[in-house]
């Protein structure tokens, strides 16, 4: 947002003004370059601020950080029941199993801690890997670690990887989401791809993610309140009562896509990883609070 769009490009003869004029010409050049190569996207940080402002206005009196709890941030009745569920959290077994998996030696004798230290590392993901030129999620990193140490990658829709990430999420509770701002062209492209996915209507029912979670956030579909998108990524994997199991963020993405009549994408597909990257960036500043319980 630092591009000077106000200047009218007038050039006077004073030396200082010549420099100013040069700068103006330069910034026009920049603008032109942006306009000709791609649509003029807002910068990621402006997007994040715009989202925060939108939800602050829509849910006045509710701090942005509270949206880490989804609808329970503003649905008082549902919150009571939800808090009761936390007395005996149904995700606990998955966390315990994840810990066991975490400590089983890999093929070459190494363990996951050779890749992930003490395991409290969730806030490092997702990130844009400049060398590989793609978004690396925690799940991708788990399989990279396995390959490095002579193991086959785990299927992304299987039980083991979701339990491993549930354990890692548990250890990482309280860390603050802090995705580095996408700066390089490929990183921005991945971010904007996620933003485009989020904002595009799809499926026979013609809904974008933003239709429900920006436009209608706080309203009800039947008896269900619609949550804000800031906080959508903070609490995964999540135990869903509907699933009777812990499941991943991407499994939830797929479910949302199906609900609007769209054919879903595969877990860890570039589409869903870019969407996760975008959503996590705009959630910067919120604490991680997974695993959680949801309906």
């Amino acid at each position: 947002m630092s591009i000077n769009t106000k200047s009218n490009g007038s050039v006077s003869k004073a030396p200082g003004s010549v420099i100013a004029g040069f700068v103006t010409l330069f910034s026009y050049g920049l603008l032109y370059g942006l306009a000709s190569s791609a649509p003029a996207y807002a910068e990621p940080e402006a997007d994040r601020q715009a989202m925060r402002a939108h939800y602050e206005k829509r849910f006045s009196g509710i701090p942005i950080e509270a949206h880490k709890d989804g609808v329970y941030a503003f649905d008082e009745d549902a919150r009571e029941q939800w808090l009761e569920l936390e007395d005996f959290p149904p995700y606990e077994i998955a966390v315990d199993e994840g810990e066991e998996f975490f400590n089983i030696p890999l093929a070459d004798g190494a363990t996951y801690s050779d890749c992930f230290g003490d395991g409290a590392i969730k806030s490092q993901y997702p990130y844009f890997d400049e060398e590989r030129s793609e978004v690396i999620t925690l799940e991708l990193a788990i399989n990279d670690c396995r390959r490095q140490h002579g193991e086959e990658p785990l299927p992304y829709n299987g039980a083991e990887i979701v339990r491993l990430s549930a354990y890692i999420a548990f250890l990482s509770r309280g860390q603050i989401i802090a995705v580095a701002e996408p700066v390089s062209e490929p990183a921005l492209a991945a971010y904007n791809d996620g933003k485009r996915f989020y904002s595009s209507r799809r499926g026979q029912l013609n809904f974008a993610c933003s239709s429900c979670h920006v436009q209608l956030a706080g309203k009800r579909l039947r008896s269900e309140r619609l949550s804000a998108s800031l906080g959508h990524v903070s609490h995964w994997p999540t135990y869903r009562l509907k699933w009777q199991d812990v499941g991943s963020l991407h499994r939830r993405f797929a479910r949302c896509n199906k609900q609007v009549g769209a054919e879903p994408f595969a877990q860890q597909s570039p589409e869903y990883r870019n969407l996760e990257y975008f959503l996590t960036y705009i959630s910067n500043g919120l604490p991680l609070n997974g695993p959680a319980i949801r309906k």
Binding site: M1, P39, A42, Q49, A50, R201, R202, V214
Partner: peptide, 22 residues
């Protein structure tokens, strides 16, 4: 739908609050 969304999505994101841009 895919064709229409090529550009339509750009209008659907919340706009930055006026006066708040750096």
């Amino acid at each position: 739908q895919a064709e229409a969304e090529q550009s339509a999505w750009l209008e659907r994101f919340p706009k930055a609050p006026t006066g708040a841009s750096p």
